[in-house]
C-alpha cells in the first residue's frame, strides 16, 4: 500500500507580492537604485526563493549570495523590510506585506546588488584568534571539559558568521576600526572555554581603543542574530573579564588532557614527520 502525503495548499500560488530590490553594479552605476519585480508567491516560499524566481524568470543579472538554503551557511543575510535576516529562513507570507524591500547588509562595502564584501567581518574575526590556544605540548588525547563548563560559552558557538550583527550595529557604522559584535562574541567564546589558554594573546586587540569598550549596548546585534546568539551579552561578560584582568589579573586554568589515546599519539608522529618532510623540501 502506498501512503500519499498531501501537503494541503503546498505549491499553490497564494498571492503576488512586489519585490523592491536595491541594485548596484559598480561597473555601470554610480549610485545604487531600486528595481521592482512582481513575484507570485506559493506557500512555503522564502525571500531567497523569491530572489531566485526573479533571477530565473525576470532578470538574470540580479546577484545575491547563498549556498545551503537552510540557515546553516550564513551566506544569505540581507536587510529584508528594514531588518537583517537570512533570506532563506524568511517566509514571504510570514512577513505579511505586499511589498518586500530587499537591501544588502549595511556597514560593508558592496560588491554587487545584494552581495556585500564581508572581508571586514572575517578580518576582525581572525584578529581575535578564534581557536583554542595552548602553550603546553600537543595533546595525546582530547582536553576534558565538564558539561557545565561548556555551558559557559555554548550559546556563542552557534555563530554562523552571517554578518547580520555588524550590519545592525550603530557603533560599526560610526567607527571603521571597531571590532564588532561578532568578533567580540567569538573572543569571549574562546576565553571562556576551559580548554583555552590564549587570553594574553587576545588582550591587545580586545582591550584597545576600538575594542570591547566601544560597545554602546544598543543591542541591535542580539536583536537581529538569526541563530539566537546574544553578542551584546558576550561583550558585557568580556568587559567583566578585562576589568578583572586590569586590576587583579585574569588566570586561565588549562583543562586537563584525557587518558592517552594510541591513535592520537600515532597521528601526532605522522604529523610531525610530515612537517619535517615539508620543511626539508
Amino acid at each position: 500500500m502506498t501512503v500519499q502525503v498531501i501537503l494541503k495548499g503546498f505549491g499553490e500560488v497564494v498571492k503576488e507580492v512586489t519585490f523592491r530590490v536595491r541594485r548596484y553594479d559598480p561597473e555601470k552605476d554610480n549610485t545604487p537604485k531600486y528595481s521592482e519585480y512582481k513575484v507570485p508567491v506559493k506557500k512555503g516560499m522564502t525571500v531567497l526563493d523569491g530572489i531566485l524566481y526573479i533571477k530565473e524568470h525576470i532578470d538574470p543579472s540580479l546577484s545575491a549570495r547563498y549556498s545551503c538554503r537552510m540557515g546553516i551557511c550564513g551566506s544569505c543575510a540581507m536587510i529584508i523590510n528594514g531588518k537583517e535576516r537570512l533570506a532563506c529562513q524568511t517566509q514571504i507570507l510570514e512577513l505579511n506585506k505586499d511589498l518586500i524591500k530587499v537591501d544588502p547588509l549595511g556597514n560593508y562595502n558592496l560588491i554587487k546588488d545584494l552581495v556585500p564584501d564581508l572581508s571586514k567581518l572575517f578580518n576582525n574575526h581572525k584578529s581575535v584568534k578564534p581557536y583554542i590556544i595552548r602553550n603546553d605540548n600537543p595533546p595525546t588525547a582530547e582536553y576534558l571539559q565538564k558539561p557545565e563548563e561548556r555551558e559557559k560559552y555554548a550559546m556563542f558557538t552557534e555563530c554562523i558568521l552571517c554578518g547580520a550583527c555588524l550590519s545592525a550595529c550603530p557603533t560599526m557604522a560610526a567607527d571603521d576600526l571597531y571590532l564588532g559584535p561578532q568578533a567580540l562574541a567569538q573572543a569571549y567564546r574562546y576565553i571562556a572555554d576551559s580548554r583555552d589558554m590564549g587570553f594574553e594573546e587576545r588582550l591587545n586587540v580586545l582591550d584597545s581603543k576600538h575594542g570591547v569598550w566601544r560597545c554602546h549596548f544598543a543591542g541591535a546585534c542580539s536583536e537581529v542574530c538569526p541563530k539566537g546568539v546574544d553578542p551584546a551579552l558576550a561583550i558585557q561578560l568580556l568587559r567583566g573579564v578585562l576589568m578583572k584582568n586590569s586590576f587583579f589579573g585574569y588566570k586561565q586554568v588549562p583543562a586537563p588532557v584525557g587518558k592517552e589515546r594510541p591513535t592520537v599519539v600515532e597521528g601526532l608522529k605522522v604529523l610531525e614527520e610530515k612537517i619535517k618532510e615539508s620543511e626539508k623540501k
Binding site: D207, S208, K209, G211, W213, R239, L242, M243, N245, S246, F247
Partner: peptide, 9 residues
C-alpha cells in the same frame, strides 16, 4: 594606560 583602566575611571 590600557583602555579598561581608562574606562574604569
Amino acid at each position: 594606560m590600557r583602555e579598561s583602566k581608562i574606562m574604569f575611571l
